[in-house]
Design a protein around this nucleic acid. Structure first.
Length: 623
DNA sequence: CATGCCTACGAGTAA
DNA sequence: CGTAGGCATG
């Protein structure tokens, strides 16, 4: 790749503190990758570099691109590898290396997802004798408050008092402490723990902090505008010799998890003498798309005008349909037409504000046999039968994991929560593989031991699949076959995986895969959030109606501002063809007009979805 | 105490 | 639309 002068300046920069402000499509990733490659070519070991990104996709993309650039630079031994990952992924690796040092029971800890966290909140509420029907103590509200406090390094009591009222504060604090105790006893960590434990250890264990500082003299942070105070605390703890942060205030879209744009805006003030470099030439999109993007964020303070260095044309389509189904059919027709005309399916993407808009679309794509890969929203890991399946594996790995054991036990006929909880209480020593278990679950320890002894992940999956089959058939009645199919697909993927059980479980919790099947002839279906950092020739944004964007829950100006940036991110994913559409009637048969964040004079066209869509042989395949 | 049926309510973005 | 939780029953 040819670097322009601004990019070349970044690549050559060796200041201790560097801030790169780069608009959408300005070659931010390419420049970051070249900076790292340049270091390695000039003698820096791969292992001395840490690259932090915000999504797993971005991480693997970066790792690949760096490796391609430095394939001819010899490694300095077997351990000379680059570390690339999200904060959560890097934290997970560090915690696995010395769990006890982070205050965990042992290295067999498991990482729980949000729904598992919710069931612990429910238990905590029960143990604290709080009426769980009380709207003040909904597990979701507790969790989001607690999580935000941790991610923003704010004061717990103040936040709880603010959210629940001063009278409830003491009780709420008690529930929080109980939640923490339940996690500790089960040897599980939630997502925030991964980061909190990392930050805390660096704070209290200077030796450890020094070790990490020596390990990674070079740290690169991508998407800095999405970082929150907890991320910043980790960066402060790492305090690397060289720190390069890259970001774009216009693309800050993670306010809901406490991201703080001031961290990038105030970077120069925090680090006196930091070098600030800007990338402003857009190499991605045609001018019409950039004009729209500029218009969307023109009201923002930090707006930085994108100019097309490509000098190419772009096509913009504004389409109205009657229903979401029509909208989906219109999209299918558009893709089929393009593919028949010789365009590649992988150059098509459909984006939506909320994952539920993608569901209707998926039905249409399945019906018309258009292969797709989906990012964001509900994942395989969220389906009930997969959670059932995984719960057994979690107990195999972590014998303290009572949450998983509860779920495993209640799969058996005749065992409900009461019996299961009692049985677990009787085995408080954590030896889940010994002793007497009730009724139909009597053989459970035998299964678990058997699975634990299996030689590899594939065998584990196959053994458990055999065992769980009758339970699924009994528990899910009608949809049992479909659910068994999901489990079968999961087991198939386990057979192809390298690595051990803990890698698999961590992968499930941290790299929440949506779909294992990624055919080359597939289009992309994604939430806007998950599409960050990606680009396609042809992008279609669905659900751009007045009741859909901004999200109805976005009320305050700061939320609306984030919604504008979200729209900006969506629009700037497209290189040459962008379609924006909405259904004039939604599921509740309420009418809606166009999203008000789009220009008033946008030339909306009313479109009718073609009914008889021709099936192209090119689009045949799974899904 | 498990289970099945009924009703009422809620529905965001990610790791 | 889907599911979580309440209530009656076995």
């Amino acid at each position: 790749m040819h670097l322009n002068p601004a990019q070349a300046r970044v690549v050559a920069a060796r200041e201790k503190r560097l801030l790169v402000l780069a608009g959408a499509g300005t070659g931010k990733t390419a420049t970051s990758v070249h900076w790292v490659a340049d270091l390695i070519r000039n003698g820096t070991p791969r292992s001395a570099i840490l690259m932090i990104t915000f999504t797993r996709k971005a991480a693997s993309e970066m790792a690949h691109r760096v490796e391609r650039l430095i394939s001819n630079v010899p490694k300095r031994g077997a351990h000379d590898t680059l570390t690339v990952g999200t904060y959560h992924a890097v934290a997970s690796i560090l915690l696995r290396q010395s769990a006890e040092g982070f205050g965990l029971l042992n290295g067999r800890f498991t990482t729980i997802d949000e729904s598992e966290a919710q069931s612990i909140w429910k238990s905590a509420l029960k143990q604290c004798s709080v009426d769980s029907k009380s709207p003040l103590f909904s597990p979701g509200k507790l969790h989001s408050n607690y999580s935000l406090v941790r991610n923003t390094c704010a004061d717990l009591e103040a936040r709880l008092a603010d959210s629940f009222g001063g009278n409830y504060m003491d009780q709420a604090v008690r529930v929080v402490r109980n939640y923490e105790e339940l996690k500790r006893a089960a040897n599980v960590v939630d997502y925030d723990d991964l980061l909190v434990l990392w930050a805390q250890r660096m704070g209290r264990d200077p030796e450890y902090a020094a070790k990490l500082r020596a390990r990674w003299p070079y740290v690169l942070v991508d998407e800095m505008q999405d970082n929150n105070q907890l991320n910043q605390l980790i960066l402060d703890g790492l305090n690397p010799e060289h720190l390069l942060v890259v970001g774009d205030a216009n693309q800050s879209i993670y306010g809901f998890r406490g991201s703080d744009v001031s961290l990038i805006v105030d970077f120069p003030r925090k680090h006196q003498g930091a070098q600030i470099l800007r990338l402003e030439d857009n190499y991605r999109s045609g001018q019409a798309i950039l004009d729209l993007a500029n218009d969307i964020v023109s009201k923002e303070e930090a707006a930085l005008t994108l100019r097309s260095a490509k000098g190419s044309e772009a096509v913009l389509d504004y389409r109205m349909y009657l229903t979401p189904q029509d909208e989906a059919n219109g999209l299918v027709a558009w893709v089929k037409e393009g593919v028949l005309g010789g365009k590649k399916p992988k150059e098509y993407a459909v984006l939506a504000r909320s994952s539920r808009f993608l569901t209707i679309l998926e039905i249409a794509l399945n019906y018309h046999q258009v292969p797709y890969k989906k990012y964001g929203g509900q994942t395989l890991a969220d389906s009930a039968e997969v959670k059932d399946f995984i719960s057994f594996l979690r107990v195999v790995h972590n014998p303290h994991d009572r949450i998983a054991m509860l779920r495993a036990l209640t799969q058996f006929p005749g065992i409900g929560e009461g019996t299961a909880a009692k049985a677990i209480m009787a085995h408080q020593d954590g030896l889940f593989d010994e002793g007497v278990w009730p009724g139909a679950a009597a053989d459970l320890p035998v299964w678990l031991q058997e699975i634990r002894k299996a030689p590899n992940l594939g065998q584990m999956g196959l053994m458990l699949q055999e065992r769980i089959r009758p339970l699924i058939l009994a528990n899910y009645a009608k949809e049992a076959e479909e659910r068994l199919g999901t489990i079968n697909a999961l087991v198939n993927s386990m057979e192809k995986m390298d690595g051990d059980l803990v890698t698999f479980l961590d992968g499930f919790a941290i790299d929440r895969k949506t779909d294992e099947f990624h055919p080359d002839n597939a289009i992309t279906v994604s939430t806007i959030h998950s599409a960050k950092g990606l680009e396609w020739d042809n992008v279609w944004l669905i659900g751009a109606g007045s009741t859909q964007m901004p999200h109805p829950r976005a009320q305050f100006e700061k939320d609306l501002s984030e919604e504008r940036r979200l729209l900006y991110v969506a629009v700037t994913r497209a290189r040459s063809h962008l379609v924006i559409s909405f259904p004039s009637e939604n599921e509740r048969r309420q009418g809606q007009t166009a999203c008000r964040m789009l220009p008033n004079n946008a030339p909306w066209k009313y479109c009718k979805a073609e009914s008889g869509i021709v099936r192209s042989p090119m689009m045949m395949g799974r899904r």
